[in-house]
Write a protein that binds this DNA or RNA. Structure first.
Length: 724
DNA sequence: AGCACGCCGACT
DNA sequence: GTCGGCGTGCTC
């Protein structure tokens, strides 16, 4: 009997296509299907008795997998993401499969070549000539082990391939394929650290609720031992024979966190990081799916790792914006992880020193259980904040005399100093001193940033690079001056002021090469580098052994930025970096240069702390009908002709009038022209997730028709991180 | 993602 | 007049 199989063909902008099949493949199995003129890979997402398609159906070519390749619970997670983030399944399912499997590779555990004796050691020795001493040694080496020995281990022990071949020809050993399970830590396991009362309560509360869904918000100031809580809870989960998934914002930035996990547990661990190749990624994925690895640590995309015995999810630094994917399917890994935990009926821990307003609100609405860690492990003296009013001060390369003096004092005491400036390059603008001409990007509505290191001006939006203009193209004068400050400029100035100090610059330009970031961080961790200048990259979870001073040069950005999350992020940044300053014997100091020294929120943050600051922000979000009280989506559209974008956006705005949502716009996007494309956007606001989703879904059917023949490209961003 | 089709500039 | 570059649309 033939039936209709719904096949999600990857990257087709659709949920699925209907095919016929005589056999009924499992949901989540991969199939080859005829598609247009070629054969493409698809995933079975449904089986029906009939079709809505009015064309004759084609038939599935081959069923690749007998078992589901994507397990049921991940398939339904993908369905949820598809509906919530308004994206077709065919764009989401690829996230749940490693590249090799998207290309049709057979589903199998990583295999490695191993060797095992086929006869007893004694008879093996007899078959070998007396003078072949290395072959005899190899026989002894193999006879000491019962299981097949991986070739890698044999080679590492000082034997070579020709010895193996000789024994193989002598028929005393056999070659076999065995599963390559990552080595379990051989070194003695690190003992649990003693915990304080708060940590003990947190651990106990979570351990008491391992058998069902519950979300724990673990709010711990920097240095309060959040990681130790994770570790001691995980011990219990592993003891139940279950797996643990840990998501971190950026894996390269958390080497010491990884080190603690690997040193603590006697189980195989898989780490998903950007340097894995396709084979390694497939291996890690397969080992997790077959329950061979018990602990998976990774960034956003590791959310889709299949784990049949999943017993706990941990989201570290849950407030971090990098959990939200900013291109393609714009999903939030924290929110999707909450769905996964709920569907799997297991606990989830959201950890942060500075929880997102969304999470604080969920705790206030009693959806989350709050666990607070307020005590620092090191009894460091209190922080000393100083606001430097720059309205009346002379700035030298962005730095006041007072700031420079404080930096020098801390350096003289052999301490570390961190200088934050959230702008890379040397200066954000090149200006003609004579006529006011500015170096602008041809393709975007933006100024070119001067990069003195590479003798170029660069557009930070489209990547355009050109050599630094020698004279003004407008008035031919040669007095082009850099205006404003960036990391390069601050770095150069401080280098000239502090010539004997070892300095490190950390920004996207500086750490773009492989391992550059790791190298820099190693110099910071060892204490070799004393003065660090960098962007936000520098703020994330590092260990600065002798840090006593943090300087924030462009805090005003957070106040002037029209974006609704700018203040929240500034508060989180200041709290995070401030928490790292100070050692047992030296008080930490934080200098904030600002034009707004009396800004009430800045002062509340400093005097009352992050929680009070967050409460105030929540009040203003409620008044402004903004998240977490209101639900937003941004519809962005672009084309080379403005009119076409406008027509399109007006049409889909019209399509939503029947729904109880507020649609604002079309308005120019903050960067109205980027790479020769005119960009405009709509903002959709709704009082509930359900009405928002319904309006967007309705709109999508209209939008598909409205774009035909217009060249308009568009996307939907549900729960946007920023409105730009 | 990939393939075909169509419109344009650069060539024989 | 033809080749082929890329921009655009379609796929059960």
């Amino acid at each position: 009997m033939t039936q209709v199989v719904q096949v999600c063909v990857l990257h087709t902008n659709r949920d699925y296509f209907d095919y016929t099949s005589t056999v009924e493949p499992s949901l989540g199995a991969r199939v080859w299907v005829p598609f247009r003129t070629t054969t493409r890979l698809g995933i079975v997402v449904g089986v029906q008795a009939s079709t809505h398609c009015n064309k004759p159906l084609k038939s599935i070519t081959t069923v690749i997998d007998d078992e589901p390749m994507i397990p049921k619970e991940l398939l339904s997670l993908c369905h949820w993401i598809s509906q919530y983030y308004q994206s077709p399944l065919s764009e989401i399912l690829p996230l749940a499969l490693p590249k090799k499997y998207r290309q049709g590779a057979a589903c199998q555990l990583p295999q490695i070549e191993s060797y095992q004796l086929t006869v007893s050691a004694g008879s093996a020795h007899q078959k070998i000539g007396v003078r072949a001493t290395r072959q005899h040694a190899l026989i002894d080496f193999l006879s000491n082990r019962l299981d097949p020995v991986p070739k890698k281990t044999i080679l590492q022990a000082g034997f070579n391939t020709s010895l193996l071949n000789a024994l193989h020809i002598a028929q005393v050993l056999k070659r076999c394929e065995s599963i390559d399970i990552p080595l379990i830590q051989e070194a003695p396991i690190e003992a649990p650290l003693p915990v304080n009362k708060e940590q003990g309560i947190a651990i106990q509360s979570i351990v008491e609720h391992l058998s069902s869904y519950r979300c724990f918000l673990l709010q711990g100031v920097t240095g309060s031992g959040k990681t130790e809580v994770y570790l001691q809870v995980i011990v219990h989960v592993l003891a139940l024979g279950r797996q643990v998934l840990i998501l971190v914002p950026e894996i390269g930035l958390t080497p010491q966190l990884l080190a603690r996990f690997t040193a603590r547990f006697h189980v195989p661990i898989a780490v998903f990081h950007s340097n894995l190749n396709d084979t390694q990624r497939q291996a890690a994925w397969q080992l997790a799916r077959d329950n061979h690895v018990k602990l998976v640590i990774g960034t956003r995309s590791a959310l889709f790792t299949p784990m049949p015995a999943l017993g706990l999810i941990v989201i570290d630094e849950e407030h971090d914006a990098s959990f939200k994917q900013m291109d393609g399917v714009r999903y939030h890994a924290r929110d999707a992880a909450l769905m996964r935990a709920h569907a799997t009926n297991i606990p989830i821990i959201l950890g942060s020193a500075t929880p997102s307003l969304e999470s604080i609100n969920n705790y206030l609405r009693q959806k989350y259980t709050l666990l607070r860690l307020t005590q620092k492990a090191l009894n460091s003296p209190p922080l000393y904040f100083e606001i430097i009013d720059i309205r009346t001060q002379v700035l030298t390369h962005g730095i006041t005399a007072r700031t420079l003096a404080v930096i020098k004092t801390h350096l003289a005491q052999d301490n570390q100093v961190l200088v934050f400036i959230n702008r890379r390059g040397f200066a954000p603008v090149m200006l003609c001193h004579h006529c006011g001409w500015m170096a602008d990007c041809r393709a975007c509505d933006s100024h070119l940033t001067l990069h003195k290191d590479s003798h170029q001006v660069v557009c930070h939006h489209c990547g355009l690079r050109q050599s630094v203009p020698k004279q003004c193209p407008n008035c031919q004068h040669r007095e082009l001056v850099p205006v404003g400050i960036g990391t390069q400029r601050v770095f150069n100035y401080l280098a000239s002021e502090c010539p004997k100090i070892t300095m490190v610059r950390i920004d996207r330009d500086e750490v773009s090469q492989k391992y550059a970031l790791e190298t820099h961080l190693a110099r910071i961790n060892s204490g070799e580098a004393q003065l660090m200048v960098g962007t936000q990259l520098l703020a994330k979870g590092h260990h600065f052994p002798r840090l006593t001073l943090v300087v924030v040069l462009d805090a005003d950005n957070g106040f002037y930025n029209q974006d609704f999350r700018a203040l929240e992020q500034l508060g989180q940044l200041l709290t995070q970096v401030a928490g790292r300053a100070g050692r047992a014997e030296f008080p930490g100091q934080v200098l904030i240069q600002t034009h707004l020294p009396h800004h009430p929120l800045l002062n509340q943050l400093i005097q009352e702390g992050y929680e009070a600051f967050a409460q105030t922000l929540l009040l203003s979000r409620r008044e402004a009908n903004l998240p977490p009280y209101y639900f937003l989506a941004v519809i962005r559209a672009q084309a080379t002709q403005v009119e076409r974008v406008l027509t399109f956006l007006h049409a889909i705005k019209e399509a939503m009038v029947t729904h109880p949502v507020t649609v604002l716009g079309p308005a120019p996007a903050p960067l109205a022209r980027k790479a020769h494309q005119h960009r405009l956007q709509l903002l959709v606001k709704a009082s509930s997730r359900i009405t928002l989703a319904a309006a967007l879904k309705h709109m999508r059917t209209h939008a598909a028709l409205a774009t035909i023949g217009t060249g308009v490209r568009w996307n939907i961003d549900v729960d946007p991180m920023d409105l730009s």
